[in-house]
Design a binder for these strands. Structure first.
Length: 302
DNA sequence: AATAATAACAACCGCCGAACT
DNA sequence: GAGTTCGGCGGTTGTTATTAT
């Protein structure tokens, strides 16, 4: 048997594959190799067809704002069931959705990482010098060509007007307790998706007993975004990264993390511009929001 | 302009379940 | 019923393109 070919597909190979599918339909992938048409495995052929050659694919087309929101909502509802999510998104493959989500998660992880101090590597110029002035938000209008930014306008305004009220004190919760309260209601059934993305909807925002570490934030609009309860999954790498900032002894000990009070208390239903899911809430902040985060105190200063 | 960092994309790998022998 | 093959899925890695420094 000839050696199996791997790596990028050539145009000629694509043509052979397309020809085969035209003749026999998208099946019998293994026969392509057994017939000597291609030196690719059946799996590889199938993948190539499904992800690149299939008709009506949106190859090279960036995810639109609506697609992005659909992914966010569906991921919250189904989890990492990319194939299932892709069935709701014409022209997109599970691989597309998966890659899109992965890039997005990396981006968010980076944002979060940059927003908390690294105890092992003390930040330069923090302690001795005068505190750095917060970055002056640009006076330019926020660019609205990006979906995230576009949506963040609504969310930020909503947050700054609604959520900064009545939160004058900051709860202090032992980190160990926080870690122990791992049972997040992430299995909680989310409202069924409705594909009427442009209309305003009421969403039931599930309660999240786990508050997010307090991160003072300033938005482009000059309004502090404080005391946000940023829901997150404990199994989420972002959060693990966050806790990775502390040693195990810290977690078992009395280290305290400044936390926002739970804004879910006493109010379960919120009327929002569009449904916020556990992930989508933080996801919907503007990408540059974290540029204005004041660094947290180092653990020793708590 | 050169380099580094990051994002986006393409493809492979391993696992699993269904179908087949 | 056991073993094998195939196809589907999700995770991961490698490559290329783009952006930032």
């Amino acid at each position: 048997m000839s050696e199996i070919k791997k790596g990028p597909w050539k145009e000629e190979e694509d043509q052979v594959l397309i020809k085969h599918v035209k003749k026999y339909g998208p099946r019998d992938w293994s026969s392509i190799r057994s017939k000597g048409l291609l030196q690719r495995t059946g799996k590889s052929c199938r993948l190539r067809w499904v992800n690149k050659l299939r008709p009506n694919l949106k190859n090279g087309v960036k995810f639109s704002a609506e697609e992005e929101r659909t992914v966010i909502e569906l991921q919250a509802q189904f989890g990492n069931k990319w194939a299932r999510i892709a069935t709701y998104m014409p022209g997109r493959t599970d691989n597309d959705v998966k890659n899109f989500w992965s890039s997005r998660q990396k981006r968010l992880a980076k944002i979060l990482r940059n927003s908390v101090p690294q105890p092992s590597k003390p930040q330069k110029n923090i302690s001795k010098e005068a505190p750095a002035l917060p970055k002056v938000p640009s006076l330019e209008e926020p660019k609205l060509n990006s979906s995230v930014e576009e949506r963040s306008l609504v969310v930020s305004q909503h947050c700054s007007s609604s959520y900064t009220n009545n939160f004058d004190t900051i709860n202090m919760v032992p980190l160990s307790e926080l870690v122990n309260s791992i049972s997040l209601p992430f299995d909680q059934e989310l409202p069924p998706l409705e594909f009427t993305p442009n209309e305003k909807r009421i969403c039931i925002w599930p309660q999240f007993p786990l508050p997010f570490p307090h991160i003072p934030v300033q938005t482009n609009f000059g309004q502090p975004l404080e005391h946000q309860e940023l829901p997150m999954k404990l199994e989420d790498n972002d959060l693990l990264d966050y806790f990775g900032q502390f040693s195990a002894s810290d977690i078992g000990g009395n280290v305290q993390v400044p936390l926002a009070p739970s804004c879910s208390s006493g109010q379960d239903q919120r009327e929002l511009e569009y449904p916020l899911t556990p992930d989508s809430f933080i996801d919907d902040f503007p990408l540059d929001m974290f540029d204005y985060i004041d660094p947290l105190q180092s653990p020793s200063g708590w």
